[in-house]
Design a protein around this nucleic acid. Sequence first.
DNA 1: CTTAATGTTCCCCA
DNA 2: TTGGGGAACATTAA
Length: 255
Amino acid sequence: MPELPEAETIARSLAPLVEGRRVLNAEFPGRRVLRGSVPELAGRVIRAVERHGKRILLTLDEGALLVSLGMTGALLVDTGPGAYTRAVLTLEGRLLLFDDIRQFGNIRYLAEGDDSLGPDPLEISAAKFLARLRERRTRIKPLLLNQAFLRGIGNIYADEALHRAGIHPQRAAASLSKLRAERLHTAIVDLLREAIAHRGSSVSDYVDAKGERGGFQLLHRVYRKQGQPCPACGTPIRRIVLAQRGTHFCPQCQR
DNA sequence: CTTAATGTTCCCCA
DNA sequence: TTGGGGAACATTAA
């Protein structure tokens, strides 16, 4: 469900609804939702809601909650708890729910900052991006999915960015020319900004904190478009499996 | 019944 | 040491 544009949309929709509010009670009906130990949350105040890669960071007056949305996680405000509600935070005047059908998502408490992720793709410079590519020996698509390399890109935007940049997903990352690497950097930035402007991609069940769907799925060029003509050249889009993920590309434009 | 799905982690092996 | 491959996690939809 969530990659960077979706997480950004969730954070923006959620922030004005919960920032500054005190937690009155916290319950976790989902047995497997909590990771690590979580201290008493009642009495804490939510100071800020921000995107952290493809995750959502709820900064409290002491510590923070890091919400990983997994494939099907959603943060919803003032809806009734349902069969897939895994966490319930009762706030002053609002109810914040974490719903997650497949339960790949989780919530962990951070006492301090989290430095386990790579740079944000919207903030890294082209020069630094190039330098980081050059020190890796893996193929470009799995590298883009690696959150320690860049935070926030997932399967949809990896495929879409590589198509825009004209790069084959199995291409060795370090073998990209300077020009190609810069083209990829530009493609990533443009793509993510456009997707955010369209409030993310609702391919299956992604919704923001108000339950609203995104619209960027209508502008996808290759993701899950196998057999359909490439919008650039008309060649049928191909689907392969790479790193256990469906991978969609144009065999003509991406070499 | 089979396959695939916006994700991550862990284990084994080269 | 790095990273690739595969399995696992849990659930729904086509």
